[in-house]
Design a binder for these strands. Structure first.
Lengths: 195, 195
DNA sequence: ACATATCTAGAACGTTGTTCTATAGAAAGG
DNA sequence: CCTTTCTATAGAACAACGTTCTAGATATGT
């Protein structure tokens, strides 16, 4: 085995880690496995990411960035429809990338993201807040700040998706249940918007 | 160190595991640590629970049972108020027992609950379904089966609580945000009830 | 009291994350 | 191109972990 050029080590490791994550889930990510898959020495994980935790944090951040891009790709005839479509896209992301989603929300204690990592990851929340703000310029929605309203919506989205990915959704039609919940929440928020 | 009587081994291990879980979280639960804390030999975990996984599964099931008891303890002047109060109790449980909640929802892949374990754990869902059914006999609420409606409510509850426990709630007042979301969802469900 | 069940201590193994060392090869700069 | 610096690599080693196994001592049940 030759020596990987410096400039390729980090990206090689990230690609390998993403592949293992996608195929086998977060638990399958080990330093040796990722390094072998990337064709680099295990020490590369320490040299480049300071250890397994750093590698996981990079995946964590990338996961949120990808989630944000997915939500941002939503379309609709007006801001309210776009907000709703973004919520649907949120779920689509989770369903398309269940292992990523699990890493992002079930591994935070292990990852112990740095403050910078948290900022980078949760900059993605601003996407949702922006969607809420745009919708609210069209129609009253909930009470409190845009952040408050966005948080409530996120809660519902995240909850539905998490249970679904855990296989503990007992609803007959998960698609319909998700949309029913989302529409009920949005309708309720509209009805209860401050006067 | 003496020899623990047979009849005390299992409960001793469970108590120790609960204590470590409560004080240090799921990651701190190791076979040797639990055994030492319980004053029994590590092999006891294998003899009694078939290994670490079985021990975690026992904690998992107990967690759901305790959650169910908490929800069942809710009171109110009528069934709708009791449903709502049960939702508030749900959150109270999670906040009072964050590490239990994490074990229950972030460790399922590690635990790989047996089918019996799943049945036992999610018998607790019937509590929520029952509360929904009782409330719906008073007032229309959502469309679809009681199970469907309960699942949607559970999604929102779980989502809010999970994000809160992860420390990624950006709302100013988590209590208020939780209640606002819950009330909006219930109101929306009522407004969108069939017939 | 006797036979059976089971708790215990201890050993051992593979795996994992991590740290360290020394060498060889890449990268950067003149 | 040459020299110096950087860094990827192989390999060793360690502690910790979950797990399996053995043998002896003690508890349990009849």
């Amino acid at each position: 085995m030759g020596r990987t050029p410096s400039r390729d080590v980090e990206e090689g490791l990230l690609r390998a880690a993403e592949q293992i994550l996608t195929e086998e889930g977060p638990e399958a990510i080990t330093v040796r496995k990722v390094a072998t898959c990337a064709g680099v020495a295990p020490m590369g994980v320490y040299n480049r990411f300071e250890g397994k935790q750093g590698l996981l944090e990079a995946l964590f951040i990338r996961g949120f960035q990808q989630l944000q891009a997915m939500v941002a790709s939503a379309n609709g005839p007006d801001a309210v429809a776009r907000l709703r479509a973004g919520c649907v896209k949120y779920r689509e992301f989770a369903i398309a990338h269940p292992e990523h989603y699990r890493l992002m929300f079930e591994r935070m204690h292990e990852i112990e993201p740095t403050e910078r990592g948290m900022l980078e990851a949760f900059a993605s929340f601003d996407q949702l807040v922006g969607n809420v703000a745009a919708a609210r310029s069209l129609r009253p929605l909930g009470a409190g700040s845009d952040v408050d309203v966005a948080q409530q919506i996120w809660s519902a989205l995240h909850g539905a998706v998490s249970l679904e990915l855990l296989g503990i959704g007992f609803a007959e039609d998960p698609d319909a249940a998700f949309e029913a919940m989302l529409d009920a929440l949005l309708a309720g928020m509209e009805a209860r918007a401050e006067g």
